[in-house]
Amino acid sequence: MTALPGVKALVFDTFGTVVDWRSGIARDARTFLARHGRGDADPVAFADAWRKRYQPAMEAVRSGRRPFTRLDVLHRENLDGVLTDHGLDPAGIAAEELDWLNRAWHRLDPWPDAIPGLLRLRAKHFLAPLSNGNILLLANMAKRAGIPWDAVLGAEAAQAYKPQPEAYLRTAEILGLQPGEVALVAAHNGDLAAARRSGLKTAFVLRPTEHGPNQTTDLGAAQEWEVVTDSFEDLADRLGC
């Protein structure tokens, strides 16, 4: 008996659930900062500072203060602020250099269990990201890392950022499925709670080092999600894949 009866599609939060954003951003930030005379700066702190601007930037879209704007654009705007905070003037850096660093979000590595687990899950389920990332970002990430999506659905498809209900409901509609035929797989309780409110099934996957060794959030399931696990491979076991 599968742990998610009736579910035809698994959709995945991506940043933190499928890929390790913190290490990937720090890797490229280290190169960039050294190239621009700030080799003394902490690249992990740089990654955290950049990510800290993520939710406030999307909130401007969610609240209607600005029209829908893809994440690549928001990341690029946020990068200017982070560079300024680190003593660098974005206006004095070549556009190609800034674009290279902004594309660090396209070059993130999957967690070790992600690809093996996804390959198994794909045998019985349709797989797609349900991410705030944009289509090009997610497609480039998948191409580089070998992430075996059946389709790449970026936030442009839903024209909404999680946790807005439209992000979940429009994704199900695009797939031609009822919300209850779709399960969100995520390492974030808030994301799962919003998906559940929209009628999706839920699977929590523990990622205790997404925010580093001293992480204090999402260290356990906050609700009785349909599945609670610590890896994609165990999720595949639970779903009979």
Score class of each variant (00 low, 15 high):
W105V: 05
A49K: 05
E97M: 10
D99R: 08
L98G: 03
T69C: 05
H86N: 14
A60W: 10
H75Q: 14
H36P: 03
G81I: 06
A104S: 15
H75I: 07
R51N: 13
H86I: 13
G39M: 13
M58K: 06
R65Y: 01
P56I: 05
A57R: 15
P43G: 05
D85L: 13
D40T: 02
G81L: 14
P43T: 04
V82Q: 07
R76M: 08
N102H: 04
R103C: 04
R38M: 05
K52V: 03
P56N: 04
R66H: 00
N102R: 14
N78A: 15
R103V: 00
A45Y: 02
A47M: 07
P43R: 02
A95F: 00
Y54C: 03
R107S: 02
A94M: 03
R53H: 09
W105M: 08
T69V: 12
A45N: 01
A95T: 15
W105P: 00
L71D: 03
V82F: 10
E77S: 04
V82A: 10
A49I: 01
G39K: 10
V44P: 01
L98P: 03
G92S: 15
L108P: 04
R65A: 15
A57K: 12
P67I: 08
G37Q: 07
G92W: 02
T84G: 10
A41S: 05
L79I: 06
R70L: 11
G81A: 11
L98F: 02
D109C: 06
F68V: 14
D89H: 04
G37I: 09
K52A: 15
T69F: 03
A104K: 05
D99Y: 01
L88Q: 09
V82R: 05
K52T: 02
M58E: 13
A45G: 05
Q55D: 12
Y54N: 13
A104C: 07
K52Q: 10
G81R: 11
R53K: 13
E97F: 05
I93Q: 14
L101P: 01
G64A: 03
R51W: 13
D42C: 03
D109K: 09
D80R: 13
L74E: 09
G92V: 01
S63Y: 01
G37W: 10
L79G: 10
L71R: 07
A95L: 09
G37F: 11
W50D: 02
L71H: 08
I93S: 14
E96I: 01
F68L: 06
L108Y: 12
L108Q: 13
L101G: 01
L71W: 11
E96V: 08
